[in-house]
Amino acid sequence: MTEVTMTVNGRKVRRDVPDETLLSEFLRESLRLTGTHVGCDTTQCGACVVHVNGAAVKSCSALAVALDGAEVTTIEGLAPNGELHPMQKAFNDNHGLQCGFCTPGMIMTSVDMVEKAKAAGKTLTEAEIRHGLEGNICRCTGYHNIVKAVAQAAQEM
């Protein structure tokens, strides 16, 4: 067991976990933050995406002990006051989900994509949004409404 300290959604947390604990397991099982979903568990589907030190990563493919001291944001951290983040609202407005399983990862990837584009002073094209979502798989929507949602949120963020 190793003691891991992180700041998750602005809150400092400390837990003793086995060294082989994945970040996704740490978030879901140790912290009970079950908004982060585990789909494929093989670094493909992107349902488990969270932000680590400001970058979107697949939490099923990182060890919790390796992220001691990191700042982590999960889907739960996007709406701290109960008011939806513009990306969440855009997914709702555009019906960017059906079953909703991939949605937390889709939204975390999309928020990072839009924030990076804004920081670079760029407006995302539809092709760039689709390219940016390559690591997130949705089996319901056919992606069209997800892409529309990201484009809308990019205007509002």
Binding site: G46, A55, K58, S61, A62, T109, M113, G135
Partner: peptide, 9 residues
């Protein structure tokens, strides 16, 4: 390589 999330790590 891979996707943006993989490229970040």
């Amino acid at each position: 390589i891979g996707d943006p999330l993989v490229r970040n790590m």
